[in-house]
Write a protein that binds this DNA or RNA. Structure first.
Lengths: 349, 349
DNA sequence: CTGTTAGCGCTTTCAT
DNA sequence: ATGAAAGCGCTAACAG
């Protein structure tokens, strides 16, 4: 049980005391009221005589009082904080999700507690517990790779979790996600329509639902066009530029006729394009490359990237909104699906 | 935590407040000891008879007890948490800093409380307060743009802050930074040595110290080479691809002879290269482009980016280490300066 | 080595 | 409309 032995160091401070910070009693004393009255004022609860209220507010301002969220949390078992768990802060898509969440959260008086788990399911789980321990009001989880069963197990012990960019799983408050299946279909169709013969899917890491959906969309689009799929056309990769580079490399080794690459995300696509360049393969003439995400880089890289636009900001904002509705007991959809559309640029015109 | 270590116990849900969660008293009762003993066990404090200790640990495990960090924090006025404030989670350099910090923090039993402030000084300040309110053990701040005076003011009201990537300011625990001045000099020198005549600095946003240092290095290198600097060679920009795009555009409008661009960071460089491409300007033949950061993208974009390598991970790790040393009362340097070296790739051979 | 007694700062009953 | 008392779960101080 070493995990819970937490180092609580102390500087030269005396006791666990409050190092001269203003407390609610200080305010109460200075305003000649009880602490409850102060509490009521800062929480806008109950009826308070306007004069009393104003006096308390004045004292608060002049003393520079800031409520102690830990004490509050201990008393109420809740903090005005929303946790966000992202698998990879290096991915601009998640950066957008976070921004969207922050926008709404801030507006509604909540703080964001952001955690990066670097694609590690164990870290994801322990992080989630830690947030729960901190009595966050709710958690947004972007968990593209956690298997359904494990996620369901987590949810069964967790309350108030909104799933970002994955299908609703019972036990969650709800899910806000992109229509990944349609996106995958559209991306594949586009390559088919442009007459590409040997389309390869750089599919991400196997196991997670994102992977499955991409794959399914790919297969469906190919089947609909009557094109048989060789299993070698599906290549696993980590979801970053290196992964894309290696996967594209493998694609060209295995299937030299490859003339289109559908990539798990923009980062993978960038890596794949680099692999093409290093082999003297021209994009888009010899091979077209399609990404997912339409992150800011897509417009900027060369050739610019054809990619499925995925409004991450909307997902984050929608997730927080759903959570807050839930907290307020308001009704809401269990699942919000946001469509993504293809943005055609140079890499796959 | 294991899902099977969850006994169906539920002590009549006291006041519904703690929703049936296990408390230290539950453990104490079940183990026939006082809460104090349990506390000692989980904190590895004081001497405890091994049998007692083991018994407590067993009960903790079987009950699935997890200490309430809020209660702990309230009692000790400290939580085993380190805050990190980054100006822009979309920037891969900061992602690296965060990862480095997480590595060490996790290893030492601390949690990371990450906050994004989107380059907004006000948000930076309020976020910092919120962290302080949460009684974090310390804060790492990456604050490239906050003016010295304002930062100093913040520090005067804050304890235990480590500055990341900026010079030591009195009041801070210390600073861990790159040798930005040398980096800027080296980058400029490289362009000079390769015979570039009209070198333009895309300098970032004015006001912050990062900006100043880049500028100073640029001027010093130019002066050392006896090249006069036209003020139009210094262009402000936001530190993202769009900023780079616009700034490069302006550079070519103003000084058509421009044949080298030194960019505030890799993202700016990517935007600048795109601007070149859109104008039919060849990189590196017509114009060389140099970035800062050597983020993962630098290797992958086309042409690949010559850039100053900045080991973000080291900064984050070093920052946490310095903070922990400080908390333990150990001596440490006030400032750690990490050298960055030029990585030569295609954009400025 | 272990237990007892007080809080930490805030909110929640209940009174008034 | 306001106050008094009683915790929330944990740790600090001082016994023993």
């Amino acid at each position: 049980m070493d995990k819970m032995t937490q180092p609580l160091q102390r500087t030269a401070a005396r006791k666990g005391s409050n190092e001269g910070r203003i407390t609610i009693s200080d305010v109460a004393r200075a305003a000649n009221v009880s602490t409850q009255t102060v509490s009521r004022v800062i929480n806008n609860k109950g009826e308070i005589r306007p004069e009393t209220r104003q006096k308390v507010l004045d004292v608060i301002a002049s003393l520079g009082y800031r409520p102690n969220p830990l004490a509050r949390g201990l008393a109420t078992n809740r903090t005005a904080t929303i946790g966000i768990v992202v698998p990879d802060i290096g991915n601009p898509f998640f950066a957008d999700v976070v921004r969207g969440a922050e926008d709404i959260a801030r507006e509604r008086g909540y703080r964001i507690f952001l955690a990066n788990v670097d694609q590690d399911p164990d870290r994801e789980e322990s992080t989630t517990w830690a947030m729960e321990d901190m009595r966050v009001s709710g958690i947004l989880i972007c968990s593209p790779r956690q298997p359904d069963e494990r996620l369901a197990a987590m949810l069964s012990r967790l309350d108030r979790v909104v799933l970002i960019n994955r299908e609703y799983v019972p036990g969650a408050v709800g899910a806000v996600r992109l229509d990944d299946l349609q996106a995958s279909i559209k991306a594949t169709q586009h390559s088919i329509e442009r007459g590409r013969q040997q389309i390869v899917l750089l599919a991400g890491r196997p196991g997670g639902p994102a992977f499955r959906t991409r794959l399914q969309g790919f297969r469906e689009a190919m089947a609909a066009a009557g094109i048989p799929v060789d299993e070698r056309q599906i290549i696993f990769c980590t979801s970053n530029p290196e992964g894309g580079y290696e996967a594209a490399d493998r694609a060209f080794d295995t299937l030299p006729e490859t003339d289109a690459l559908i990539c798990f995300n923009d980062l993978v696509a960038i890596g794949a394009m680099r692999a093409c360049a290093d082999r003297g393969i021209r994009v888009p003439d010899d091979v077209t490359v399609t990404g997912f995400g339409d992150t800011i880089l897509a417009r900027m890289v060369q050739p610019s990237l054809t990619t499925m636009h995925q409004p991450g900001r909307k997902l984050g904002a929608g997730g927080v909104e759903m959570l807050l509705q839930h907290l307020l007991g308001e009704a809401h959809e269990p699942e919000i699906v946001v469509a993504s559309k293809l943005v055609i640029r140079e890499s796959a015109p």
